[in-house]
């Protein structure tokens, strides 16, 4: 494992912790898209089907369990927690995400590394992760004001993607047979989706002002 991959995994972990902290400390999930969280839960469940069949390292196994567990816990809190669910911005979170799920699954049936149950679901999870942030970005755009923890959550998620791209460049240069087009192309698409958000995040950070997205 190289430093970029580790930095990517750690920023991913931090983003999840920031989100859990926000929900736990403020007992509120305002500004958070339940649809994006449900998509992430789907992403991790579909991707880590190999959890019990292929052992890569203790690190991988633990991280997989953490990502599955935390995404399910967040979805559960937003849907069923007596207090938290009241702050959910239901009327702003109307992205028709089943279209994304359908499109990604269709794409996975066509474009995969091998036509097997695990591989198709793996490709599906990669495609779905690339677009899973869309309901969240739309929600932020609609509400205009972004609270600090929500802004940091999206920032760390974007940083995770950026580090993974550096990781792939590093692996491409150092590993003789490193080619994985599905991950890399999807990863580039995913990171590009954050570009707009990053632009406004850095402007607000530079001006020491509250993050606001243009309508």
């Amino acid at each position: 494992m190289n430093i970029f991959r580790l930095a990517g995994d750690m920023t991913h972990l931090i983003s999840v912790l920031v989100l859990l902290l926000k929900i736990y400390a403020t007992k509120s999930c305002s500004g958070i898209s339940l649809k994006t969280q449900e998509l992430y839960a789907m992403v991790f469940l579909a991707r880590y089907l190999d959890l019990f069949s292929d052992f890569i390292s203790l690190y991988n196994t633990v991280m997989k369990l953490v990502f599955i567990g935390s995404s399910l816990a967040i979805v559960w809190c937003m849907r069923y927690h007596r207090v938290v669910r009241r702050s959910y911005d239901r009327e702003l979170d109307t992205f028709r995400y089943w279209i994304l799920v359908g499109a990604c699954f269709t794409l996975a049936l066509v474009l995969h590394e091998k036509f097997s149950f695990q591989e198709v679901f793996w490709a599906f999870s990669i495609y779905l992760e690339a677009v899973a942030i869309l309901p969240q970005l739309v929600l932020l755009q609609r509400s205009g004001n972004v609270d600090n923890l929500t802004g940091q959550y999206v920032f760390f998620l974007g940083a995770y993607r950026a580090f993974y791209i550096l990781n792939w460049i590093y692996r491409y240069l150092t590993e003789p047979r490193f080619t994985r087009w599905i991950s890399c192309v999807s990863g580039l698409v995913q990171t590009a989706l954050y570009a707009d958000f990053f632009y406004y995040y850095f402007i607000s950070w530079k001006n020491n002002a509250k993050l606001q997205l243009p309508a």
């Binding site: 890569i56 991988n60 590394e113 990781n167 994985r180 991950s183």
Partner: peptide, 10 residues
């Protein structure tokens, strides 16, 4: 081993 190494990322 090669096949397993395919999905060694998270």
């Amino acid at each position: 081993p090669l096949e397993q190494a395919m999905h060694d990322e998270l």
